[in-house]
């Protein structure tokens, strides 16, 4: 049992957890942030993707203790001032989700992908970059569209701001 503290969605959290506690279980069970899902046990499906210090990681493949002292963002932390993140909005507008189970991981992967590639993001890159996120419902067609649409909007916004 160890005391750990980290920042989750901008909030400082402290907890005593067993050392073997996975980050995903800590988020789901201790913090009741159940948007982060577990879809496999071999680190492949990506339903558990969160951001660790700004980078997408699989929260099922790290201990909560490894994340101590870090800044974590989950799907619950993406909205700002009650407004959906452009990626969230794009998934809805382009029907990028069906059952919704892989969706939080998809959205977290998408925001990370857009941050890394910026305006250079094209369809082939999106498909390659989604290697670590499995969806069984959509055939990915509309997920790819959603991500490209969000990327275009976010890059457009950035350009306008510059």
């Amino acid at each position: 049992m160890a005391g750990i503290s980290m920042r989750v969605n901008g909030r400082e959290v402290d907890a005593d957890v067993e050392d073997r506690t996975l980050l995903v279980d800590f988020l789901r069970n201790n913090l009741v942030l159940t948007g982060t899902h577990v879809g496999c046990d071999t680190s492949q499906c990506g339903a558990c993707v969160v951001h660790l210090d700004g980078k997408a990681v699989k929260s099922c493949t790290m201990l909560a203790a490894q994340a101590a002292g870090s800044d974590i963002t989950t799907v619950e932390g993406l909205m700002s001032d009650g407004e959906l993140h452009p990626v969230q909005r794009a998934f809805r507008e382009h029907h990028g989700l069906q059952c919704g189970f892989c969706t939080p991981g998809m959205i977290m992967a998408a925001t990370d992908m857009i941050a890394r590639h910026g305006a250079a993001l094209d369809e082939a890159t999106v498909r390659t970059e989604l290697e670590g996120n499995i969806c069984r419902c959509t055939g990915y067609h509309n997920i790819v569209r959603s991500i490209l649409a969000a990327a275009a909007e976010m890059n457009g916004t950035q350009q306008a701001a510059e």
Partner: peptide
């Protein structure tokens, strides 16, 4: 657009 989407895209399913 789907009525149910908001809860899924915000992690509240």
């Amino acid at each position: 657009a789907r009525k149910e989407d908001r809860r899924f895209i915000t992690g509240q399913g």
